[in-house]
Design a protein around this nucleic acid. Structure first.
Lengths: 219, 219
DNA sequence: CATAAAATTATGCAAATGCATAATAAAATA
DNA sequence: TATTTTATTATGCATTTGCATAATTTTATG
């Protein structure tokens, strides 16, 4: 009902509409990161995309939906870029966890651009239920992955037994701790623009994570 | 030149103007936390304060200044409420650190209201130089206090020598770690509204901090 | 090619917004 | 009390903003 997805044998190429929509989403993110959400008006975003404002209504229906979709995209991109480093299956669990942490403490996640975008959207998640949902969904995904990586590493290193309740609890707590640590460092790292400090942040983060997990993740 | 501060023998009572300005600042914060920065217009804030919009221009000059002053107030209030718990001078350094951490993980700092306000202001600190300055100033104060508390605790517990370079470095790193951890937990704690989880966050936070500092801060 | 559908622009409007300026009220002062 | 400052309201204006609606162009389809 939504689209003629399965009519005929469709070319693998995305339809023109999808491409344009993609451009508009990217333009939205660029506009917000450059001008701030306050100034990211429908007209400005259209200007960033090189189209006229009416087109945004055509593709998104309303400004609110435009914002929601852009937020979703941002979170998905962040998730994907940290997921990418752990998909190589031949890695040791510990190394996988280490890479995941490192990815979350380096570019492209730790960039002023990313944090600025994140910060601009955040307030909306407290007032707009849909934005809250989008946030929760991404958070759940990230946390699940985190717990998974932690548990695998702990089991592999013989630190916990498998399937015991207190082990689950331990992993859950560790996930919260590591997640918080990373978020905090990420926030801090984005403010200071001197890159030597940013590299130091990775070291500090892995060091702290090592203490928390009780496992050498510094390598 | 600014005010007739030292003319005559002035009553200790604040002038009417100061009181009204205070009301307007509080109204600004209330309005932002209820409606979001986007909708915190001059007229809305005036409505929250029960005055007409012209008065805001009279007291603040412009909307931008109104926002800046409100931000300053928020950060000051946050700082003061965590400072309050460590001023009792007869406390052991370790207990003092512990209380500071706990304060930063409980009400009134960890409330949706506080985080919402903080989140609303944050994006501005990336575009407005004055807002960035206000943020840096508060951050510097907090970090300095943090390092102070950490160093005192480490020295008292005999974990480090006094005045050595690597000790300073250690304290600095620990301050960054604890600060990040707390910020992350704070952010997370504000989203979930179930209070049992919030109490758990304090436990988790103190537990993690204990691991990081290498000292029992759980009580 | 013809025609229907999709994509895009053009135009306009009503509401909101920040700010200015004048008018008025309240308070201080002499 | 008279007068000057200070505080507050009233009014208005130019601009911006989101959205609607119609017109136009482009693309797909029979």
């Amino acid at each position: 009902m939504l689209k003629q997805q399965d009519l005929k044998h469709q070319r693998p190429k995305r339809g023109k509409s999808e491409i344009r929509k993609d451009e508009l989403i990217e333009a939205t993110l660029e506009c917000i990161s450059s001008e701030g959400l306050q100034n990211a008006t429908v007209r400005k975003v259209a200007e960033y995309a090189g189209v006229t404002n009416g087109l945004i209504r055509f593709h998104f229906g309303s400004k609110d939906q435009m914002i929601q979709i852009a937020y979703q995209r941002l979170l998905e991109e962040i998730f994907q870029s940290s997921l990418a480093v752990v998909t190589e299956s031949q890695l040791l669990p510990r190394e996988r966890l280490r890479r995941f942490l490192k990815a979350n403490l380096s570019s492209p996640i730790v960039t002023a651009q990313t944090v600025i975008l994140w910060a601009n959207f955040l307030p909306l998640t407290y007032k707009d239920e849909e934005m809250a949902r989008i946030r929760r969904e991404a958070y759940t995904k990230t946390t699940a992955l985190f717990e998974e990586l932690i548990e695998a590493a702990l089991v592999d290193e013989g630190k916990v037994g498998v399937d015991e309740y207190c082990s689950k609890q331990k992993c859950r707590h560790l996930a919260i701790k590591l997640n918080s640590l990373i978020d905090g460092l990420w926030l801090e790292g984005s403010t200071a623009d001197n890159s030597p400090y940013k590299e130091e942040l990775v070291v500090i983060g892995l060091d702290a994570a090592s203490d928390l997990v009780g496992m050498n993740l510094r390598e």
